[in-house]
């Protein structure tokens, strides 16, 4: 277990070395946040209580989204780029002969990355948003803790999805298409554009049941204290359920990939 802690810490440190990139990310997230805020203001002015949120809640939702964008890799840009590259070039061979579990290894590395992104790219935009606008913040201090647990589960589901996308490269040889599908789905079905509670009818129900909901919609609802008491446990169960199913799928695919598929290059 100590190995995976070290991997996690390295994942954190690696991303911490790119200070300029982090600063640029914070800037982008903040600008995005302002753009979305003005859009939401216009929307919620017209349709108050849309999706069950009042204005302050809707705006908090925007800034939570910006804070989780990098941590939950809603638009990609996480560990998968490196993993895909390693599969494409055959460097994955180096990972395979190590006495470590491939999935657990990348999971730990991604967790370290996500932890850094949450601190480095999450805290500042959230603070800016809270200073500039009137956001709905948790009433109970414990809600912050509940939110962090939900984010951790969200990061896990995000990892599991992107791991499957990355492993597809063993067969597809090029990840561009799969990555594009994955990040488009991520942006839409995580609730990045609009909260999933806004979508009507069957579309809304399907969207709220898909794994991407775990990455933003569910943590945001925990933050906004829409899910408390028993419903909080339901929310966790929903996230953990998808995490388990998708991680198991990742394991199965990994077993087939490493057994059957040729490692590229020399």
């Amino acid at each position: 277990m100590r190995l995976y802690w070290t991997v996690l810490a390295s994942g954190f440190r690696r991303h911490a070395t790119y200070r300029v990139a982090t600063a640029a990310g914070v800037f982008t997230n903040t600008v995005f946040g302002f753009v979305l805020t003005f859009t939401y203001v216009a929307l919620w002015d017209e349709r108050p209580r849309l999706g069950g949120y009042d204005m302050a809640e809707a705006l908090a939702y925007v800034w939570i989204g910006q804070s989780l964008l990098a941590a939950c890799s809603l638009m990609g840009g996480g560990f998968e780029e490196e993993l895909i590259q390693r599969i494409k070039t055959g460097d994955i061979a180096v990972d395979l002969y190590r006495p470590a579990d491939l999935q657990l290894w990348w999971f730990s590395a991604n967790l370290g990355r996500a932890a850094f992104q949450l601190l480095g790219r999450g805290v500042v935009p959230m603070a800016v948003g809270a200073l500039a606008f009137d956001l709905a913040l948790p009433e109970h201090p414990l809600t912050w803790l509940a939110f962090l647990v939900s984010v951790l589960l969200g990061v896990t589901v995000s990892f599991a999805v992107w791991y499957l996308v990355a492993l597809s490269v063993f067969w597809l040889l090029d990840g561009a298409g799969a990555v594009q599908v994955a990040w488009l789905s991520g942006v839409f079905f995580s609730g990045m554009l609009l909260p999933l509670t806004v979508f009507p009818g069957a579309l809304g129900e399907v969207a709220r049941a898909l794994p991407w909901a775990s990455m933003l919609q569910v943590p945001a609802d925990v933050f906004l204290e829409k899910r408390t008491g028993w419903e909080l446990w339901e929310a966790y169960a929903f996230q953990a359920g998808w995490a388990l199913v998708l991680l198991a799928a990742g394991r199965a695919v990994q077993a087939v990939a490493t057994r059957r598929v040729v490692v590229q290059g020399g």
Binding site: R2, L3, W5, T6, V7, S10, R13, R14, T17, Y18, G90, D91, A93, V94, R98, P99, A100, G266
Partner: peptide, 22 residues
């Protein structure tokens, strides 16, 4: 033609990972 070291970490950190891994 390939490296087993971690590209963006100091050499010492790669060795620390080896330490735990093995």
């Amino acid at each position: 033609q390939r490296t087993t070291l971690w590209w963006d970490l100091p050499l010492r950190d790669s060795y620390r990972l080896m330490h735990r891994m093995y």
